[in-house]
Design a protein around this nucleic acid. Structure first.
Length: 586
DNA sequence: GCCGTTTTCGGCCCGACTGTTTTCAGTCG
């Protein structure tokens, strides 16, 4: 699907890069900000023009708004075309590289007449750059390294991997250094973003131990390179399973902890906004605390709560800190009461050896009953179209149902719910007939074929089946591996509301599908969501955590998530839909 | 280019580290 928002965001990012090169920092900032805002919009930007809401978005002023309208009308932005002529094409990309700032590139361009990446590499290697005033061998070395590093920094890792690495490093530092008092991973890991660039670790310790801590950190066995090393901050490249990651460590005093945590958790936009508010109130916030701007007297900083409180705000959960309205909500004391892992009462998308799972239903029961305090789980194996996954036909599904009944008898209550992940076929019909689906406790319907077309029509048709309770992994995306197929999510959310169908938040770490933007939209529309692990083995049940994080980033509360309720609540949801369609209900 | 219960003009977050300097500019997050 043609995504005008993404196109516009990319243009504004490039314009920001050009303005940076032209040393117009603040204009660059404005365009950067606009690009982020447009990326985050839940709807096609053309809808905002039509409804007149474009001008009401904070960060989009008259000039950028008129450029958006120009692009929508003509497919071009005249100013962008003009700007491109002022900067060598390659430099728009180069400005993002570590070690390549606007001043550096401009000097190289002006004094050596260099305008392509190739010429630049050559000049770096043959010593021409090194001879420029203000340059030297180290700077040239770092620029060459920056070119190499670029590939690494572009490859972001998924949240799950970042959480594993974070836990490992926390444990390593804590056990190796008794001098560390507090330790936390901040940055986008703490905000639980879908993908992570760098890992930021914060610790507190007495001043005298700083050099010892930095020595230990920079010599951890996974460290392949030390980028910077100082008493307060060090940066290294670490290698995990062949993948390189930048890891930063910062040391603070105990009374600075809250301010440091707040500062380094970000996001950048959230912090900038927060600082603006502080400034209006005559305060100054930095990573060491909140200060009176005039007297420099410290008034807060030991806890994050105190930092927010000092500017008149309630503490904001890290998952919300993206400057998407959370600061305003905090001011009004109207922050959502976000769903938590402990609220989850069961898992409604689980595969067993009946299809492509690797453990039997019996093993799943033993494991889940021991490790999780769930009230129910639904076994939802694949249907027959999924031949490679040994999908179930009607006969085998009935056998599976019988096995579940027997197992429940042994448990003493209906802990395991019978279910299916039924394929949505090309025409939107389902892989099993209604009379079979009607016998099941829970029906997930998913698209597993024809990934190269817009599948909105298929999904909506599936929702119109009275026995379909939830749509599984909506877009089919696999982060970093495969783009999702196009889906008109506004239409899907509307259909979900009208038909009484839930939407799945698939917690597989590479899926996280639907994403936070659409979760928020669904929540706003009052559409119910289900967080599911789509487990194929016992380890996968741990992914529930990921699903909850993504739900929280989408502002979801406990009441929005169907599987925070009892099975009775879920039955009520199922019955509601069947009633609407006038079919027999449980 | 955006924004405003101290502003419609004059600000725009701010501190750490590095490299090239010899007191600081550039970059980064």
């Amino acid at each position: 699907m043609y995504n005008i928002n993404r196109d516009l965001a990319n243009i504004f990012k490039k314009m920001a890069a050009i303005y940076e090169f032209l040393d117009d920092r603040f204009r660059a900032m404005a365009y950067q900000r606009a690009a982020h805002i447009i990326e985050d919009l839940p709807e096609d930007i053309r809808n905002y023009i039509v409804s007149g809401k474009l001008y009401m978005i904070r960060g989009i002023g008259p000039s950028i708004a008129s450029k958006i309208e120009e692009y929508v009308k003509t497919g071009k932005i005249q100013k962008f075309e003009e700007l491109k002529k002022q900067v060598p094409e390659d430099f728009i990309e180069l400005i993002d590289l570590p070690g390549f700032g606007p001043k550096t590139l401009k000097k190289i361009h002006d004094e050596l007449g260099i305008s392509t990446k190739e010429e630049l590499v050559k000049a770096l290697k043959d010593g021409r750059v090194e001879k420029l005033e203000g340059f030297g061998p180290k700077k040239v070395e770092n620029m060459l390294k920056g070119l190499q590093m670029y590939e690494i920094s572009k490859r972001r890792i998924i949240l799950w991997e970042a959480l594993q690495i974070s836990e490992y490093l926390k444990e390593k530092l804590k056990s190796g250094l008794k001098e560390i008092k507090k330790i936390e991973v901040a940055g986008s890991v703490r905000r639980r973003k879908e993908t992570i660039g760098d890992i930021d670790i914060l610790v507190t310790a007495e001043d005298k131990y700083r050099s010892k801590i930095m020595d230990f950190f920079t010599s951890i066995e996974e460290v392949s390179e030390v980028l910077v090393k100082g008493p307060k901050k060090s940066s290294v490249i670490m290698k995990f399973e062949g993948k390189e990651r930048q890891v930063d460590l910062r040391i603070f005093n105990d009374d600075e902890w809250g301010a440091a945590l707040q500062y380094f958790t970000g996001s950048k936009q959230h912090n900038v906004h927060l600082r603006e508010i502080a400034k209006e109130k005559g305060l100054k916030i930095n990573e060491y605390g909140v200060f009176d701007a005039k007297t420099d007297k410290k008034i807060a900083g030991e806890t994050e709560e105190s930092v927010y409180q000092s500017v008149g705000l309630k503490w904001i959960p890290p998952e919300l800190r993206e400057d998407r309205g959370e600061i305003e909500a905090s001011m009004r004391d109207a922050l959502p009461d976000l769903v938590e892992l402990k609220d989850i009462k069961g898992d409604l998308h689980v595969h067993s050896t009946w299809s492509d799972g690797v453990v039997s239903i019996k093993e799943i029961i033993d494991f889940v009953k021991k490790k999780y305090r769930y009230d129910y789980i639904a076994i939802t194996d694949h249907s027959k179209s999924q031949r490679v996954a040994h999908g179930l036909d009607e006969g085998r599904l009935l056998e599976e149902i019988n096995e579940i009944k027997l197992l429940n008898k042994m448990i003493g209550f209906d802990f395991v719910k019978t279910g299916i992940e039924v394929d949505i076929l090309l025409d939107g019909s389902l892989d099993l007939p209604d009379d079979v689906l009607s016998k099941l406790d829970w029906v997930v319907a998913s698209v597993h074929s024809h990934f190269n077309r817009d599948n909105t029509d298929r999904i909506i048709k599936a929702m119109e089946n009275p026995y379909v309770n939830v749509i599984g992994h909506m877009t089919g995306r696999l982060i970093g591996l495969r783009e999702g197929y196009p889906v008109d999510m506004n239409a899907v959310i509307k259909a979900a509301k009208e038909t009484g169908t839930a939407l799945e938040i698939n917690a597989q770490p590479r899926r996280m599908d639907i994403d936070e933007i659409w979760i928020r939209k669904a929540v706003e529309e009052g559409v119910k969501l289900v967080i599911s692990t789509d487990a194929h083995n016992l380890g996968n049940f741990a992914f529930m955590e990921i699903g909850v994080y993504i739900a929280r980033r989408g502002w979801a509360e406990k009441k929005d998530i169907l599987n925070t309720g009892s099975w009775k609540d879920i039955q009520r949801f199922i019955t509601e839909k069947r009633k609407r369609f006038g079919v027999k209900y449980v």
